[in-house]
Design a protein around this nucleic acid. Structure first.
Lengths: 333, 333
DNA sequence: GTGAAAGCGCTAACAC
DNA sequence: GTGTTAGCGCTTTCAC
């Protein structure tokens, strides 16, 4: 990378305005307690020189960075394919912007990335971290803890290193799954199947637990493992149809999974919801409304969760939050 | 945000190892020219104290940051809905990782964000910037130029501020469009329509130019404006069918647009490719292979473009690159 | 090879 | 109110 042209310092601004560095600094930082004419002269000097404060120097003394890291423990492909992240990020982004804080997105793809990300977090670039989509045994919680960074997790972290008194924002996955199953029961279905999410994530495990608790038929053949993607939903649906061709309802761990399941059901000539009723989880509009038929799903307030995470972080809150879910009825069940 | 626990300094490491700060610094930075026993002692002290260098202090003197900003001038929603960004980011990410540089993603949603992002870029957090998805009149090029940051653009920037001798990586949009149209002509089609991308982006304009140059029928009613999204593709396709019901081929500005167009064609009972042949642009596998029928499209090497951008930036190259495109035949044309 | 010392650009006491 | 001064934690000459 070619050398960055050396930029004017506060010293230069002060000289040009005929004041001390301290006064120049005061003006740059709001100008309280500086007399108007001086403020004006400094402002002008800043303008003329195109001065921008050097953040490294500033952070060195203030220990603040006005930046928050969002760490997503997924390969880019999944992050960008799943509107879930988009929505959550949008919530975070809005809240941080309101606090004049910069969002810095860090993606970790492989093991090597962890040390790099760890270095970045510990290196004093950000004031805190929002960590998402943890998998079991993820080294990330340990990393941020060692970095000594205030952290809020998106979703209840598993009991890996350093998450004992972690602050997190989650939705009521277990309860939501129960609502979904009971809705299907209320429709008169008795052979309710479940396609799980990636079972190395607590959200998937919690939904599975909620399903088991409410399901009428404990036959393990009614449970197939998915991975929160449409492809995983397709595979799992095929498995289920093979193992229990008599199933009359499916609760999918998320909307993307449900979309995949719907495709397979149609392909196999099963009518939805007449033959098989389907319920998803998330209520991601771009997905749930576009499926054919439109998806009945358990809504979790995704954007709100993101916003809340950011608020807890910048507010220095110390307690986790679990948000309620609601059933959104459309056509599929 | 709660106060970050104060972390050990190089001073502490030096004291514990019984050496000077200078020697400790040398070891931390590779250890050249320090005798083995000392290296070992310092390494151990680092380990025991859990020392991590303070990047702000380091940058202050070295003026390096080992971080590169990726700026995307789109609202999060689009960024995350479009696999195009995902692929490009993956290429960038791989290349930067190889150079031990951290990727910092900055999203700009509204006008206000521009000043915040500008401050971040000018504030000395990163060694360079990769800027994407520029719109005409975008203030971003001006911002990065004023920030004095080495920059590589993704896609040819429009002639707004400060892009005169910009370095960019683009694919041969114009040529690719020509190939698409000539392929359709080769299939015997004579009434070829075009759904454009967002015309405030050069990629869309260039593809439109390529289309015009090669199209057999210059009727303006055969051109409808889209916006690179499936929804835009649907709207444009409806328009086209209404204006020129006799059309027998469509060249869509990207695969997402083509997907929307295909949906409308099916809905209107036109068979693809028998009645209407369709060609897309991008060759994004998750889209092109999933459409029904599978999409014939102009392939651009998206991930490779990302990788190349990163390489040009860290390598300090001064010249732009335009990559060739190729036609990928599937079923739709 | 190793240490002492200067200084990166800035803020925050503390004097005046 | 404004200026003077002392660092923030680090790298990097420059002596030794």
């Amino acid at each position: 990378m070619t050398e960055t042209a050396s930029r004017p310092t506060l010293e230069a601004v002060a000289a040009r305005a005929g004041v001390s560095r301290a006064t120049a600094s005061r003006v740059v930082n709001g100008g309280d307690g500086v007399r108007e004419p001086l403020v004006e002269r400094v402002r002008q000097a800043v303008e003329e020189l195109g001065y921008v404060p050097n953040q490294a120097a500033r952070s060195l003394v203030t220990r603040r960075h006005d930046a928050v890291a969002v760490v997503i423990a997924e390969p880019e492909t999944r992050v960008f394919a799943d509107p879930f992240f988009a929505l959550q990020l949008r919530g975070i982004s809005k809240e941080l912007t309101a606090h004049d804080s910069q969002l810095v997105l860090l993606l970790t793809e492989g093991r090597d990335d962890h040390t790099r990300v760890g270095r970045y977090l510990a290196g004093g670039h950000v004031d805190g971290a929002l960590v998402f989509s943890l998998h079991l045994d993820d080294p990330l919680p340990g990393l941020v803890q060692r970095a000594g960074l205030p952290t809020v997790f998106g979703g209840r972290p598993g009991w890996s290193d350093g998450t004992r008194d972690a602050v997190y924002v989650d939705s009521d996955n277990r309860g939501g799954a129960g609502v979904a199953v009971r809705h299907l029961l209320g429709l008169g279905r008795t052979r309710v199947a479940h396609i799980t999410g990636a079972l190395d994530q607590t959200s998937a495990v919690d939904r599975l637990d909620g399903f088991r608790e409410a399901a009428p038929d404990p036959d393990p053949r009614l449970i197939a493992e998915g991975d929160f993607t449409p492809g995983g939903g397709e595979r799992a649906m095929r498995e289920l149809l093979e193992r229990r061709p008599d199933l009359d309802a499916v609760f999918a761990a998320n909307d993307l999974t449900a979309a995949g399941a719907l495709r397979v059901l149609r392909e196999c000539g099963r009518r939805v919801p007449e033959d098989v009723a389907v319920v998803g989880f998330d209520d991601m509009l771009p997905v749930a409304e576009q499926t054919d038929p439109a998806l009945t799903t358990v809504r979790q307030p995704i954007e709100e969760m993101g916003r809340l995470m950011a608020r807890l972080l910048v507010g220095g809150e110390a307690s986790s939050v679990v948000l309620p879910t609601t059933l959104v009825r459309r056509v599929s069940a």
